[in-house]
Simulated assay, not measured.
Amino acid sequence: MAETKTKPTEVTADAFIDAVADPVRREDAKVVRAMMERLTGEPPRMWGPSIVGFGSYDYRYDSGHQGTSCRLGFSPRKAELVLYVLTGEPEQAPQLARLGKHKTGKACLYVRKLADVDLAVLEEIARGTLAFMDARYPRNARSPSSM
């Protein structure tokens, strides 16, 4: 079975964010970083080369694949800000309808710039995702910093 490539690294999230070339994307990343740190109570940690993650959880799929990932995260990519905050649950649909200009993937929310969305709704989505994660994957003693 293939090993998961997205693991905690020693690169600091601040160094990564400070190196984001686009000034709008860099400032948006700082805002999202602060929000997710406040909501999770966890410091940011780089997961792989481009994901800023908060907290961790252990998962195991029916296929037998298992690993550890961040509870919430984001990546300030060149084209857009990618937020790992979607659960796939229908309860998020009304929130997404109120969010503003965005696109979605299976677990990803894509935003060109934070000015296009309602930050209060984005925070509501992130809080709901944390509640979903806490119910499905109860917090454990392991954290990315202890790996």
Rank of each mutant, 00 (worst) to 15 (best):
Y57C: 03
H102R: 07
M35Q: 07
G41I: 06
V117S: 02
Y84Q: 07
F16Q: 02
T4Y: 05
E37H: 08
D58W: 09
T6G: 02
T12V: 04
G41Q: 09
K106L: 13
K30M: 11
E27C: 03
A34S: 11
V11T: 13
M35P: 06
V32A: 11
P43C: 03
R77W: 10
L83S: 05
I125P: 02
R139K: 15
K103P: 00
R38L: 08
L122K: 01
V24E: 08
P44T: 15
E27W: 04
V117M: 04
G128N: 10
A19M: 05
D62L: 12
T87C: 09
A29S: 11
P144G: 12
M1L: 13
R60Q: 15
G73T: 01
R139C: 10
A131K: 06
H65I: 10
L109E: 01
D118E: 13
A79V: 14
F132K: 09
A135K: 14
Q95T: 05
R127S: 02
V111F: 07
S143R: 14
R77G: 09
T4S: 14
L72M: 12
K7D: 00
E3S: 10
S145C: 07
A34L: 06
L122R: 01
A79M: 13
P43F: 00
R77P: 12
E123L: 01
G48W: 13
G105F: 01
V11G: 02
P44Q: 13
L72N: 09
K103Q: 11
D116H: 15
R26G: 01
P49T: 11
P23K: 06
F74H: 06
D62N: 15
G67F: 01
R136Y: 06
